[in-house]
Computed example of a mutant assay.
Amino acid sequence: MRVLITAATFRSHLYPLVPLAWALRAAGHDVRIAVQPSLVGDVTAAGLPAVEVGRGPDFMSELKKSIDSDGGTPPGTAPSIDKIVVPHIRIAEAVVADLVPFAKNWKPDLVVADPAAFAAPAIAKAAGVPLVLHTWGPMPDQLWADLTSERTARENWPKDLVAFLDTWNVELGPDYADLVVDPCPEELLAIRMAKRQEARYVPYNGAGVTPDWLDEPKRRPRVCITWGTTSEFMGPEVLRPPLLAIEALAGLDVEIVAALGKAGRELLGDAGEQVRVVDWMPLSMLMPTCDALISQGGPGTVLAALVNGVPQLVVPQISAQPLGAELLTNSGAGLTLRPDELTAESVVATVTELLDGDSVRPAARELAERNAARPDPTQLVATLADLAAGR
């Protein structure tokens, strides 16, 4: 079986696809990962064959054009879904131009993609093969909840996106995909997409070298503070909450691992002996050693902690993070502080509850056990082969 995999131009959308690609390759299937040039190195670093497509449009540049088109967006706030979709369409147009000829020559039996790769349904339609969507975690209800019917999608999806999909005769509604592989726990589901196949979440956060200190016995509880990659396009002002949290935790007997990227390292400077400052480290390496996590609630971050039963404090800021934070809190496996609730006192009280309380930690462990009981990527290979064969 030949499987063509593609993802939107974000590591956070590519990484969830990697374990399934490994499983397909290990089972003897031929796999290609089609991505824009900026992600080619991430594909090859994962030991997978890459196809470079969509040369030209850069998501961040296109997003800036979209945001600035009517006066811009206030600093520190997320752009609207309509503005975010515009650069995705520009990229999808470029990807289709490269990938349709490739697909017609290579003749895949199946297309697998993250839902934000809007070129994928067009490629599957052009190649005449099934489309499998692989979600990246707690899915936002924007767009995807509208796939309950063709009429609903056409009424609510951005008109430019509908026009692009119409060009390729992509069906909107429940038949948009032939299967949806979903590693999101039931408790964190904002929507339940049609034809859903639940799966185990297997964290992959890129390649890395394990530092010596990570394998040494801990002397104090370890609290990780990470803020994803939003500072790359929203500016360092979004790092104010984690910097406040680091300062607040100075009075607790904990070790702090601050994984805030280069911008965070520059802002922290000499943070003192209590704080380990790292530019970046795969959470799949770090989380098994942690006792608590503080983040803004990106899906990959939340699930990496969940897999390891790590209690979480989420300070949601953008996109669907507030919804994800609400669902996580309702599950009992984490707690939430809104940005306007964030003070030194609230951080200390919340982290103390995560470390010493008797409610959050058991709930986090239970979600980890439920995830481990789900089908892993190797167990999904036969399902995908049957789908490709028309069974």
Rank of each mutant, 00 (worst) to 15 (best):
N105G: 05
E198W: 04
M234V: 11
S331V: 04
P339I: 12
P87I: 07
L14N: 05
A21G: 10
G332Q: 00
L165Q: 08
P130M: 07
A127I: 04
D82P: 06
A21L: 06
A271L: 12
H88E: 11
P211T: 14
D30L: 09
L161T: 09
P339E: 15
D82C: 09
A120S: 12
I89N: 08
P375L: 07
Q142D: 14
A23R: 11
D30C: 06
A305C: 06
G47L: 13
G72L: 00
T336E: 08
N330Q: 10
R338A: 11
E273K: 13
W168D: 12
W106D: 04
A122P: 04
R2D: 06
I33S: 00
V3N: 12
V360W: 00
A333M: 01
G269P: 05
E366R: 00
R90D: 08
L286C: 05
P311M: 00
D175T: 12
F59I: 12
S359R: 15
P282G: 12
G269Y: 14
A122M: 09
I84R: 01
V314H: 02
A364D: 00
E237N: 05
V347L: 12
R196F: 13
A385H: 09
L179H: 10
L354E: 03
P375I: 10
L172K: 06
M193S: 07
K159M: 06
V307P: 00
S331P: 07
A250D: 09
R196W: 15
P75H: 14
A117K: 10
D58M: 14
V31P: 02
R200E: 14
A292D: 00
P242C: 14
L4W: 02
T336L: 12
V202R: 14
P115M: 11
A145Y: 04
G54Y: 01
A34P: 02
M287K: 02
M139K: 05
W22P: 03
L17N: 09
R11N: 13
